[in-house]
């Protein structure tokens, strides 16, 4: 039995060990950190000290004083101020909106690529992933210029708005700027899984649907769309999860209105130097994202079991 699985085991241990060391262990360390007190100068309150005279490490935690080292206070603090919950809700909202806009924009594009001539298909896919070849931060900075008050884009929009009597707008440092940039950054992650799915569709199914009386909309809604759902789910996960935790984009484009939960977490670690609370925020973010994905999967399964009645 072991011999039979030896090959499997051999090829699966490097990624397993890798994930164990660099994901599972840090996650556990973070859970530990979330239960402790911040140190005086950042970091965590140490659990031990080195005796200067002997050079020995002495553990300070005892059966009697462990409450001075471990606490659930960091979690209760989360509920103490509504501003944290609001920030969570807002971040989920931004991520959801980004996902939705990406889906609406990416679907027709992915469909066109999948249905285009084999010869130019690879070129079109290449164009979709081309932005990855320039640095992420450079691309975000580019949006600072595009959305800035003196850019040709801003001036052109304001000129058009002026024609219909609307006062000039500024775009930078707003939720609008954050969403625009989030969509831009994540669009390829939606296009690629959708393309991979749509490209495999059996086109004779569309012929059959049409033959049996389905018009163009019905052919899409009853055949193409349900068959593309795995691609939609994959794309949505690839956009939603990174968009939820992002901090660079709201940092640079969001101003005070546009900050997200990622900014708060970053702030806890780098500015407030409150690692335990930063850990709590991270854990809650991860757990709620997983919970949401699980809920979506349940709803998805229930709706497919119900058939298309």
């Amino acid at each position: 039995m072991f011999k039979k699985n030896l090959g499997k085991w051999l090829i699966s241990w490097p990624p397993t060990v890798y994930l164990l060391i660099f994901f599972a262990v840090p996650a556990l360390i973070m859970v530990g950190a979330s239960l402790r007190f911040p140190g005086d100068y950042g970091g965590l309150l140490p659990l031990s000290h080195v005796d200067e005279a002997t050079g020995r490490t002495i553990i300070d935690v005892t059966r009697d004083n462990w409450r001075d080292f471990f606490t659930l206070e960091n979690y209760t603090r989360l509920g103490s101020d509504a501003v944290y919950l609001q920030l969570f809700v807002k971040s989920f909202g931004y991520a959801a909106l980004t996902t939705l806009i990406c889906l609406v924009m990416a679907y027709p594009l992915a469909w066109l690529i999948a249905r285009s001539d084999q010869k130019i298909r690879d070129l079109l896919v290449l164009l979709v992933i081309l932005p990855f070849w320039s640095n992420f931060l450079v691309r975000v900075y580019a949006w600072m210029i595009i959305l800035g008050p003196n850019s040709a884009f801003t001036k052109a929009i304001n000129l058009l708005l002026g024609l219909v009597g609307i006062a000039p707008q500024t775009f930078m440092f707003s939720p609008f700027a954050v969403i625009v940039c989030l969509v831009y950054v994540h669009l390829p992650f939606m296009v690629l899984p959708l393309y991979a799915n749509l490209e495999k569709h059996d086109l004779s199914l569309l012929d059959a649907a049409q033959d049996l009386g389905a018009n163009a909309w019905q052919r899409f809604w009853r055949v193409t769309w349900p068959l593309s759902l795995p691609g939609v789910y994959a794309g949505a996960a690839l956009v939603f999860i990174p968009a939820l935790g992002i901090f660079a984009v709201p940092d640079l484009l969001g101003g005070t209105d546009g900050i997200m939960i990622g900014n708060l977490i970053k702030q806890q670690f780098l500015e407030s130097r409150d690692w335990p609370f930063g850990s709590v925020l991270s854990i809650v973010l991860t757990v709620s994202a997983i919970g949401l994905a699980g809920l979506a999967a349940l709803i998805g399964r229930a709706s497919t079991r119900g058939g298309d009645e």
């Binding site: 059996d202 004779s204 199914l205 012929d207 059959a208 649907a209 033959d211 049996l212 009853r222 058939g307």
Partner: peptide
């Protein structure tokens, strides 16, 4: 006019 296709073209996601 309805067609029986060579590959049957049954909708795989429908019962």
């Amino acid at each position: 006019v309805h067609t029986v296709f060579q590959s049957y073209a049954l909708f795989p996601h429908m019962s």
